[in-house]
């Protein structure tokens, strides 16, 4: 007799599909927030699976900081074309021009926090009542308490003190007018799950995830890519290294890692090795992904 035991990754996939279908049923105007990064690539794949053979019944929306890697934008457009989804782009630059957001000062002004303004304006303008995000509970401690269906008040704010209990697989998406939900179908996935899924599903990802030669500057231990948005300070200079990125966000705060990883298999090894490194106590190792994340947390957000 064969086993009726679904593997963990299949269970996570099924859970995410279930959540997406619930959102499509419980909300009038959902939208999938899409950055072109690995988590949102998985999200698009899950959305395809959830509604196949029909098309994804909601648009994708990219909040463009204007500081994106060109490779990511090209990838975004080709994926959207292939999937046949509707893409909405809202620009942080427009929010700045309209006086809604103010550019940060300093040698590498980041637009990460400004994105929130553009996002909330877009949700309100387009009357979206549910926005899918690729957030995972393993990313950080506050996220460990996040719900699948996360309620936002009329100001778009999260109130961690007043979250709805979430039991079984019964999701309560009821809301008052003007409120919305953020929904995180990948809540129970880990970084390793995401990479394994991308490999198992053979999903294309932007080229900047793989090793390439690029001019970077070492700023406080973080390698930042050469870009017009960064001003060199003091003795800083660009050097060309073999690097890759592990996230594809804003160029001003997305650190590169020195890496020769040339394939998904290499990346998976690196993610696993990062754990070994951390286990072994070599935090200074440049491949240590958590250390990079930690620096990002301390310095950039």
């Amino acid at each position: 007799m064969h086993s009726y035991n679904l593997t963990h990754l299949k269970q996570l996939e099924s859970e995410a599909i279930f959540i997406m279908r619930e959102v499509a049923a419980q909300f009038e105007r959902p939208v999938l927030l899409f950055s072109g990064g690995k988590d949102s690539i998985v999200m698009v794949r899950i959305a395809q699976k959830a509604f196949w053979p029909a098309r994804i019944p909601f648009p994708l929306m990219h909040i463009d900081t204007g500081h994106n890697f060109q490779e990511t934008l090209e990838f975004r457009d080709s994926l959207v074309a292939e999937v046949g989804a509707e893409l909405i782009v809202r620009n942080v630059q427009d929010s700045i021009n309209a006086g809604r957001a103010v550019e940060e000062k300093g040698p590498n002004p980041s637009r990460n926090t400004l994105q929130t303004i553009t996002l909330l304006d877009a949700l309100e303008e387009l009357r979206f009542d549910a926005a899918f995000g690729g957030g995972r509970r393993d990313e950080e401690k506050a996220r460990a308490k996040e719900r699948f269906f996360s309620h936002r008040d009329e100001f778009g704010q999260w109130d961690p003190k007043n979250q709805r209990p979430e039991l079984w697989n019964l999701f309560n998406g009821k809301k008052h007018i003007g409120e919305h939900f953020r929904v995180f179908p990948l809540s129970n996935w880990t970084e390793m799950d995401v990479w394994q899924y991308i490999a198992a599903e053979n999903l294309p990802i932007p080229t900047i995830y793989f090793t390439h030669k690029r001019k970077v500057v070492n700023r406080n231990g973080v390698f930042l890519a050469e870009s017009p948005f960064i001003t060199l300070m003091g003795k800083e200079k660009y050097e060309e290294l073999d690097i890759r990125f592990r996230t594809v966000g804003d160029m001003t705060c997305t650190g590169a890692v020195v890496s020769q990883a040339n394939s998904l298999q290499d990346i998976i090894r690196e993610v696993a090795a990062a754990r070994v490194t951390e286990r072994g106590g070599r935090a200074d190792d440049q491949r240590s992904e958590a250390a990079m994340e930690d620096r990002k947390k301390q310095g950039y957000f």
């Binding site: 070994v276 490194t277 286990r279 106590g281 070599r282 240590s288 958590a290 250390a291």
Partner: peptide, 8 residues
């Protein structure tokens, strides 16, 4: 060994 070095 599920804890990252920085956490430890």
């Amino acid at each position: 060994k599920s804890i990252f070095e920085d956490q430890l």
